[in-house]
């Protein structure tokens, strides 16, 4: 497939990355090689297979269900330690730059 600068820009925006001109140039040459590698999958006949990997991945029977625990509400005991990691906090909340331009 064709890897264009527009495609690289679009994906970078989705990934919330800002690319330097050097990075963009590198992706324009590397991405076709990587996509050629992953395109080998097209040779594999998977017409008989469902896309879900879950049960075969675990080796459990197809009708197995994921284990769950009761959804109990409790106060997280280490709130202060969590907030101590915040780059910026105010009154126990995370502070962020303004969301809208004016």
């Amino acid at each position: 497939m064709q890897v264009t600068e527009e495609l690289i820009d679009h994906v970078a925006n989705l990934a919330r990355l800002e690319l330097t001109p050097e990075e963009k140039a590198a992706y324009l040459t590397e991405f076709p090689n990587i996509l050629n590698l992953v395109a080998q999958l097209n040779d594999l006949d998977t017409s008989e297979l469902p896309a879900s990997p879950v049960n075969w991945t675990s080796g459990l029977p197809d009708d197995a269900t994921s284990p769950t625990r009761p959804d109990n509400t409790e106060t997280y005991p280490k709130l202060a330690e969590c907030m101590a990691n915040a780059p910026e906090a105010e009154d126990g909340y995370f502070a962020v730059p303004k969301i809208l331009d004016n």
Partner: peptide, 17 residues
């Protein structure tokens, strides 16, 4: 891409099992 890879994964697991 993603869907096809999940199918390949399922097939590989079945072959191993």
């Amino acid at each position: 891409f993603y869907g096809k890879a999940q199918q390949a994964r399922r097939l590989m697991t079945k072959e191993f099992v």
